[in-house]
Design a protein around this nucleic acid. Sequence first.
DNA 1: GCGCATTCTGTAAGCGCATACATGACTCTG
DNA 2: CAGAGTCATGTATGCGCTTACAGAATGCGC
Lengths: 362, 362
Amino acid sequence: MSTAPTVYDVAERSGVSIATVSRVYRNPDSVRAQTRERVLAAARDLGYVPSGNARGLASRSTGVLGLCFPDYADPDTDAEDDDAAMLYSDQIIRGMERAARRHGYALLIAASLKGGPESLVAKVAGRVDGFAVLARTVPTEELEGISRRRPVVMLAGPREEGDHLDHLDHIEVANFDGQRELTRHLVEDHGLRRLAFVGSAEESPDVEARFQGFLAACRATGVEVPDEPAVRAVMMTQAEGARAADALCDRDGGPPQALVCANDQMAVGALHALERRGLAVPDDVAVTGFDGIPLGRLVRPTLTTVRQPMLRMGEEAVELLVRRLNGTPDADPVSLMLPVTVARRASCGCGPEEQAAVAIGA
Amino acid sequence: MSTAPTVYDVAERSGVSIATVSRVYRNPDSVRAQTRERVLAAARDLGYVPSGNARGLASRSTGVLGLCFPDYADPDTDAEDDDAAMLYSDQIIRGMERAARRHGYALLIAASLKGGPESLVAKVAGRVDGFAVLARTVPTEELEGISRRRPVVMLAGPREEGDHLDHLDHIEVANFDGQRELTRHLVEDHGLRRLAFVGSAEESPDVEARFQGFLAACRATGVEVPDEPAVRAVMMTQAEGARAADALCDRDGGPPQALVCANDQMAVGALHALERRGLAVPDDVAVTGFDGIPLGRLVRPTLTTVRQPMLRMGEEAVELLVRRLNGTPDADPVSLMLPVTVARRASCGCGPEEQAAVAIGA
DNA sequence: GCGCATTCTGTAAGCGCATACATGACTCTG
DNA sequence: CAGAGTCATGTATGCGCTTACAGAATGCGC
């Protein structure tokens, strides 16, 4: 692992100047074929790999796009089953990677833990030409500064009015419409009326939108519910979902007829908690989630949920970034809303077979 | 999107030298608190983000690890169902990301398409401190050169004897043992004797090892099979799996009793093809895969397969890289073999419930 | 108040590459 | 065969940061 060879080494070995070496890589046609071969041969001999850092510094661009996402993994779950570990951020990653590749970019990913918030984004931001951020992964103020200098697209968080971030491109899904339709389904098609929403609306604008959709459906169907979520979860993990389910069951009046969870992970946690208590899903309590992670189809009963088009979200994010990168850097901010689908599965009482679903919203 | 501020701007604005600005970020304690605050305030005002390129250049390290993987996605499948798009590389990505984060690294990922092979690895290699490569993603010779200058770990390809790459760290799974056990199960527990192996052994050393495991089980149980795979697939995608299934059914003597596929994607493709032909799985033909991707549990019948611990593979890869990076760069190459588990599900005739599985190999 | 040990901060020299510009070698024209 | 025009290559500079090293400021004991 000796010191890596540089353009200088290659230049010396092939008897040309460093400029020529550089040209061989950046603009091969501008070098005579014979010279080029000599240079490439020397490079091969030396095991030369151009330094991305130096290249980036000199050319002011990296050829890399980035993604910052929160780490919502349930540590315990993963150990026993890889599948369960695939969260929705993973699908966004794949979507972005694929689209990035099409445009000649690589993808740099980093999850933030509550720990060093600043370092994370800064690290990513400093190494990419542009990046996407999953809602609330990064403190607003920090993004504010960063986004002045390079393209950033917000994912999954509705734009915040009056916020300093409204100059950012933005992609969200039909949280409101999706949750409203799912809730309507519970009430009208399954006749459930005592519903409880699980999830902290303050935590994330997505959850807030979902909760509002939930409320809208309740009002429209004449179901009474409190003006705020029955249980606030801090993290949106399985553990929190289980805790929420337990808390709701222990309340006066017993468990509600349906647990409407703000995401799939909490719903799965609730499923487990209810099973431990000997309550049957969906007969005693219906449970629904939101997201459409693979795990939702692996649990029993299979989880009724609202599916987000996550791959597409990742792809669209890249498209927006690329557009800004070559062309219209100062165009007005774009705001996309992608449609969702309600996946009716077993946990709401729809039986084992998944029902055909239609796109909702946007 | 004006020119981004630099240390110089921050230095000027806060009335210090650029060295002090740098120190504030690299080594905060070495700067007086009062000075530090001034600098940070100026940085905040300007929206300053340190350039990763410049930092990397000057400090000769990037704080980034990389992963190169092949793109085996089935383009058509993805559109209709995000879940189906989650391949095994995605799980490796997650495993690596998580471990990388623990060690303070970000992760750069890039899939290679057959197209520009060189540019891909070179690009990644030039931007990271070390990286992992999924078997055969990268031409051997190219890796040869690169790996002389920075840590590389090979994933999922058995080390090739006499190869120039045997100085690389290496992680594989118990391909041979896993496939042998699965094959034994088909023959001894289900009484199947006309088996066909689908997959090109030349393409990948993993497939070769699996095929050898298949052969070993056949010999041990007295089942006769040809010395090479019944069908060679070029890509290991669903489309290829379907084609293979069709080809085998059209042969003289009709379909075999079992299709032993070299990976899950091909197995799923075979499942579809058989269904189209009106053949029942597992009653007419049993089908098995290898990998344990989430999709395998979503198809009907659920897919019997050999599960690889992919998350763990990603994590171990990072551990190996990190170890080389800080400490023992020239230690002897490490070779890890991770155990697999046989997941007995419906497609081999074991019924809908997944059977408890035990670790095999290593 | 002085000398010396400690901080703290500034100066300067790269890190490896891209690229504008200058130079040199040819070819072509008249 | 001189001069203009091409093409290939070299020279020189700077990208934004880190980091010895040196220098200034501060604190301490006496």
